[in-house]
Amino acid sequence: MSSTETSTGDTPAHEPSPHAPQGAGSQRHLVQPLRVAADGVHHASGAERVAGMEPPPQARVSHMQRHLGWMGKPLYYATLIFGAAMMVVPFLWMFSTSLKVESDVFQFPPEWLPDPARPENYPDALTIAPFARYLANSAFVTITDTVFSLTVCAMAGYAFARFHFRFRNTIFIAVLATMMVPVHVELIPQFILMRGLGWIDTFQALIVPSIFWPFGIFLLRQFFMTVPKELEDAARMDGAGHLRILFGLMVPLSLPAMAALGIFKFMFTWNSLIAPLIFLTSREKFTVTLGLATFQGQYETQWALLMAATVVALVPIITVFLIGQRYFIQGVALSGLKR
């Protein structure tokens, strides 16, 4: 392994995976899997600490802070609060605009509080374009994709983690190598393939190619490798078959990874523009992302309406994020902690 593989911290060095492709470049997420001990307790890694509520205790009193004394903290807070404001203001501004009457939109300098407020922008936007339909389509595509993708990745990850067969490493590297190919490079052939299959303007076209997810396969393999072998033996003695071992043991024991992957998948698919853009043609099949893009093409300058539609498109994913925040953040930390 190259020098960059060395652990960056005090997390226990995971056995370097000999099958990770040396040349798979940047996408070589040799993730540090959460270690599942026999007792099922995860030993905290940096990723988990980030995902947790608090910084590790030692981090609380830091050297820098001591050095800067009383003026350090306020400076940090000022910076953070300014940054946070920069993050939030566009959302608030969007929301404010979405409640304005069209004539108030064009005011300079801008007004923050809509007066008069016009909540009817929302029903208007929802009737001009079938956003409810778009949302339902997105939900269907995203959930189906996520469920199937996790299933497929778990199956492949299990096979690569626990079975020995000829060409295993070669096949695994081939799968990983596809992580390097940018999706846009594959667009045109995929379009041709979908046309050949008669899948243009169907949800399959969005779902099926997206199910096969090399990164997911890789991550779950890493996790499954940390499940103690004796647990699997115990399950075999108890009469469990391979599928039952996979879905009744390996998967439940890898829930952090499954959750992180599921959330990534959900986010990617929900937010994806290019696939719906090239595979879908009829409006009633549009996902919310494509629907919104199309809507803005038509109502380019009706800002109040457009902002209302954008809010509608954002609310579901932001809600999902706020509910599953822990897993989102854990997932991101996981993907970057150790390559």
Binding site: D39, G40, L231, A234, A235, R236, M237, L253
Partner: peptide, 19 residues
């Protein structure tokens, strides 16, 4: 197969299903 032998095993690590 292991499941059909009607033998039971106690493991060193106990190997209890954590979940």
């Amino acid at each position: 197969d292991a499941a059909q032998r009607d033998v039971a095993m106690v493991f060193q690590s106990y190997a209890l299903y954590p979940h």
